[in-house]
């Protein structure tokens, strides 16, 4: 079988590629559900109603989507410039702990209007700082950032574990290792009463629009794209590669740090090492499903969140492990890769 490059990429193909990929992933996951001896269609139906079937289910899905939009944007911004930031998980944890620490130790007592922005900025800075280390290693020692960002995830989570078991440990938590809680005025307001949905959703949506604007309408956006398409050519064209990558890293790390902040300021109010069920890694899938487009990230994040929330609900009534959601999400990433390939190539006759 040989492939030839398509003369031009049809927009229709690019838009339906993720739909086809998700359908393929769901079909493959169906095989695994059948393997568990359960009726496949009933399982899908329960996933769907579990994710959107009621007011509570829908708000729960959107709540889950908030950190995924932010980590998805973090991955999309970085990958577009070929900065392989696989460290969103660690950046998320540092962001969360920065917000919790600041609220508990310093900013507590400040009115919401001051405290919330301060905590968010601190979280973004913490995320940035963690990504600037591997970027510095890349620029200074030509160390590939994939491995260093991955390894730093483990370091960051252990660091958080050390803090919540030590100086930041909540004395009121009956000995459990969890951080002191965010001050009441530091918590994000709820969007809908009697649900967990919080204002972090608005922040995430606004940031998706801002990122889209920055990438498509500014010099920086063009430079980061050029750096990703062909770094050597970009340098010849006068793109300051180092500076552009530092800016990309600050945005990407900052977004991942914010993901941690909104999760702790919107949902949990304190940090444990179970804060994130892999939001950082799922963000990569979200970004790829969106074909790195910031607005697409929002839709992909809602799909991913729906899979997780729906599978949780489904497994309560059927003998199918909730891991089916992780499998489906991973499969949709692989299927999406193939789908993107076929938007660019076709089978030669």
């Amino acid at each position: 079988m040989r492939f030839e490059r398509r003369a031009h990429r049809s927009t229709v193909l690019v838009v339906i590629a993720p739909v086809i990929a998700v359908a393929a992933a769901l079909a493959l996951a169906g095989v695994l559900i059948a393997l568990a001896g359960s009726p496949v269609l009933t399982a899908y139906e329960r996933i769907l109603t579990g994710a959107f079937g009621s007011r509570l289910a829908a708000t729960e899905t959107l709540t889950r989507a908030v950190p995924l939009i932010l980590t998805g944007l973090a991955a999309a911004v970085a990958f577009r410039a070929r900065l392989w930031n696989i460290g969103a998980e660690g950046q998320l944890y540092l962001g969360a702990i920065a917000a919790a620490a600041l609220s508990a130790e310093l900013a507590g007592g400040l009115p919401s209007i001051l405290q919330i922005p301060i905590l968010l900025v601190a979280a973004a800075l913490a995320g940035m700082a963690l990504l600037l280390i591997p970027l510095w290693l890349r620029l200074r020692f030509s160390v590939d950032e994939v491995v260093t960002t991955l390894l730093l995830n483990f370091v960051a989570i252990l660091f958080v574990s050390m803090l919540i078991d030590g100086v930041l440990k909540d004395p009121m938590a009956f000995g459990w290792p969890q951080s002191k809680p965010i001050d009441e005025d530091g918590m994000l307001p709820k969007l809908i009463p009697r649900s967990r949905l919080h204002a972090g959703l608005l922040l995430a949506l606004a940031l998706a629009v801002v990122v889209h604007f920055v990438q498509s309408r500014t010099v920086f956006g063009t430079r980061s794209r050029a750096a990703g398409l062909n770094a050597t050519a970009a340098v010849f064209a006068g793109v300051p590669l180092g500076r552009t990558l530092v800016q990309v890293a600050m945005i990407s790390g900052g977004l991942a740090g914010l993901a941690g902040a909104v999760e702790v300021m919107g949902v949990t109010s304190y940090v444990t090492t179970e804060l994130s069920p892999g939001y950082g890694y799922s963000g990569i899938v979200v970004a790829m499903l969106a074909n790195l487009h910031p607005i697409g990230v929002v839709l992909a994040a809602i799909f991913t969140a729906a899979m997780f929330v729906g599978a949780d609900a489904m497994s309560r009534s059927m003998a199918i492990p909730t891991y089916i959601a992780d499998v489906t999400v991973a499969l949709s990433l692989l299927a999406m890769l193939v789908a993107i390939f076929f938007t660019q190539y076709r089978i030669a006759r």
Partner: peptide
């Protein structure tokens, strides 16, 4: 990069 990460996510969740 992406294919490898996808396989890691797929293989471990499977």
């Amino acid at each position: 990069h992406v294919s490898g990460l996808g396989i890691t996510l797929f293989a471990s969740s499977l």
